[in-house]
Design a protein around this nucleic acid. Structure first.
Lengths: 330, 330
DNA sequence: CTGAAAGCGCTAACAA
DNA sequence: TTGTTAGCGCTTTCAG
C-alpha cells in the first residue's frame, strides 16, 4: 500500500491536515514544521493521492481538451501550446477527440465533467443542444478555440472569414482574375468553409465572378491538392490561381506542378493557409496565411488558468489575428 | 450540486449500491430494476463521479502517456493510435511530455501515479534510477514503446539498429560507396543514434569505411536537411549518398537539391526514415523506411488493456517490424 | 439479486 | 500556526 498523509503526519509528529497544508498553502506552515514534514515525506516515500484530494475539494487539476482530430497538424500545434502552459502550472491535460461528431462531443464532455475538471477547452463554437445545455449549467471556465464569435464563456481564435478575404484580396491585387477555391470536405471542416466565404466576399467586393468551388473528398491532403491541380487544369483552362483551404493541399499542388510541367505562378498561382514549415521549402515558396496555432493554445490556457485562479482575464473573446506571408507561388 | 448515486437510488426506490451495480456489473441487476434505475438516471440527470469511484476502488480509468515531444510527428501518430484504442474502451488518455529530460519523466510519473492510473505508457527503455525504482514497485501494467529490448513490463516497438542496417544495405546494393549519415542532435534522439549504429554495422559488414557523421543542431528539421546537403556537397565532394535520420531532413534535402541544381540520385542519393506522406510527393520520391507508428500506439494500448483485464497478452516484447520503401531518390 | 455498514485518503470548516 | 471533526460520492465486504 502507498503511504498516506497520515503516515507522513505520524512520522513528522504533526496532524495530517498540517501535511495537507504543506502542499496546498505552504505559506501557512511554520518553517520548522515544514522541515519536519519534508523529511517525513522523503522518509516514507509519500506520493500525493490526487483522487482523494479531488473528491474532498470537489475539484481537480485536470483540464479536458476536446479536438475534432489528431490527423491535422493544426490541432497538434494547439495542443502543444495548451500542454506547455498547463504542465507549467501543474495542470493535467486530458485528451478527447470527436472525429467531427457533435454527439461524440457531448458524450466526451459528460464523461469529463465527471472528473471534476477545473476547466474545459473545446474546439469551435458549434455544439449540440445537449452540449450547450450541459455547459451552460456547469460553473467552471470554458474556452472555445480556433474561431471567433458569441461563445459560452471565453473564446480564443482568429477570424477565418477575414483570412479568406485577405488572401483573395492579395490574389486580386496581383492581377489574378479566375480564382478557384479548393478544399476537402468543407461541410465538415467548416472553418475552411468560412475562409471560402471570405474568398467570395473579396470577389464580390471587386465585382468579379466567383469561379466554381472544388470540394474534394479527403484522402491524404497533399494528394488531394495534387488532384485538385490536375482537375482544374483539365476542366477550367482559364483558371489563373487556386486558393487552397490549407498548406498541405497547396504544397501537394506545387510539388505535383513540377511533375506535370505546370509553371507556378506563371501558368497558375497557388495560395495556402496555415503557414506550415513545408511551405518555405517548396519551390517556389508558398504564399500563405500564417495562423497563430500554438499561440491559440497558449492564450487559451492562460485565460483559463486566470479564470480558475480568480484573476482578470481581459476580453472574453480574444482575436489572435493572422499574417499574410507572400512567397513566389503568387 | 450534481445529483449523486443516492439521488438516483431514492428516485428509483432502490439502494445506492444497486445503482452502482447497474453501472459496474449490469448483469447482476434484474431487468425490472434496471428499467427503474435507467429512468431515474435520466430523470435526475445523473453523471457518474469518476473521482469518487476511483477513490473507493483505488483504481481509475485513466492511462498516462509520456512522450518526449509533441513537435515530432512520430509521437503524434503513436498518440493517435493509443487514443483511438483507449477511447473505444472507455479509458482516458492523460498526456505528459518530458522534453527529453529524464528527471522530468520521473516527476511526471510520480504525479500520474497519484491518479491511481490503470496503467502507463512511456516512451523508450531508458529511464532514471528514480523512475525505474518507482515503476518496479508499482503493480499496474506498463508499456514501454518505440524501441525493443529488456523492459520493465510490456514492450512494443521496432528494431532501430536493424532499420539503419537495412537502409544502408540497400544503399550498398545500389552501388553507393561513400555514404554519410546525417542526423540532428543524436545524443538526445538516441533512437536515431541506434539507426546510425545499424548503418555502421552494415558498412563494417561490407568492409567499407565509415564516412564522417553529420550531427547538426536541431532547428526546423527540413532546414537542417537542406543545410546538411549543402555542407556535405561542400566538404565531402566524394559523397554519393546521404542516409538521413528522418524523412523531414531527407525531404528538406531533396527540395533544396532542386534549388541548388544537385541531381538526385545521380549526383547524390538520399534516404530517409519514417515513411511520412511527404516522401511520396517530392521528386524523386524518397526512399525510406516505413515505421509502424500508429500501429505501435494501437498495439501498446491493446496489450495494456489486455493486461488490465487479466487477459493473455502474448509476448512481453512485441516487434512490429518495418518496411523499406524504395523511391527514385536512391 | 439486493442491501447495510464501513471506509477509500483527503480537505473544508470551524476551533483552539 | 495547528488541530478536530465531519464528510466528499462511491465501492467493498459481508449479510440476507
Amino acid at each position: 500500500m502507498q503511504p498516506t498523509l497520515n503516515d507522513v503526519a505520524r512520522e513528522a509528529g504533526v496532524s495530517s491536515i498540517t501535511v495537507s497544508r504543506y502542499f496546498n498553502s505552504p505559506d501557512s506552515v511554520r518553517e520548522a514544521t515544514r522541515v519536519k514534514v519534508e523529511a517525513a515525506i522523503e522518509k516514507v516515500g509519500y506520493v500525493r493521492n490526487m483522487i482523494a484530494g479531488s473528491l474532498a475539494s470537489a475539484s481537480s487539476r485536470v483540464i479536458p481538451v476536446i479536438v475534432p482530430s489528431l490527423s491535422n497538424v493544426v490541432f497538434i500545434d494547439v495542443i502543444k501550446g495548451l500542454q506547455d502552459e498547463f504542465e507549467a502550472h501543474g495542470y493535467q491535460l486530458l485528451l478527447g477527440k470527436t472525429d467531427y461528431d457533435l454527439a461524440r462531443e457531448t458524450q466526451l464532455i459528460r464523461t469529463f465533467l465527471g472528473w471534476s475538471a477545473a476547466g474545459l477547452v473545446v474546439t469551435g463554437l458549434r455544439h449540440d443542444d445537449a452540449t450547450r445545455q450541459i455547459l451552460e449549467n456547469w460553473n467552471q471556465p470554458i474556452v472555445e478555440i480556433m474561431e471567433l464569435g458569441e461563445g459560452l464563456d471565453l473564446n480564443v481564435g482568429m477570424d477565418h472569414v477575414a483570412a479568406g478575404r485577405a488572401m483573395t484580396e492579395h490574389l486580386l491585387a496581383r492581377g489574378y482574375r479566375t480564382i478557384h477555391f479548393a478544399g476537402a470536405e468543407l461541410d465538415r471542416d467548416y472553418r475552411a468553409a468560412m475562409r471560402y466565404a471570405g474568398h467570395r466576399e473579396a470577389l464580390a467586393a471587386a465585382g468579379i465572378e466567383d469561379a466554381p468551388l472544388l470540394d474534394l473528398p479527403v484522402r491524404q491532403q497533399m494528394t488531394s491538392g495534387a488532384q485538385a491541380l490536375e482537375r482544374i487544369k483539365a476542366t477550367f483552362p482559364d483558371c489563373d490561381a487556386i486558393h487552397f483551404a490549407n498548406d498541405d493541399m497547396a504544397c501537394g499542388a506545387i510539388l505535383a506542378a513540377a511533375r506535370l510541367g505546370v509553371r507556378i505562378p506563371d501558368d497558375i498561382a497557388i495560395a495556402g493557409f496555415n503557414g506550415l514549415p513545408i511551405g518555405e521549402h517548396v519551390t517556389p515558396r508558398l504564399t500563405t496565411i500564417v495562423s497563430p496555432r500554438e499561440q491559440i493554445g497558449r492564450m487559451a490556457a492562460r485565460k483559463l488558468l486566470a479564470r480558475i485562479n480568480g484573476e482578470p482575464v481581459g476580453e472574453l473573446s480574444h482575436d489572435l489575428g493572422f499574417t499574410l506571408r507572400v512567397g513566389g507561388s503568387t
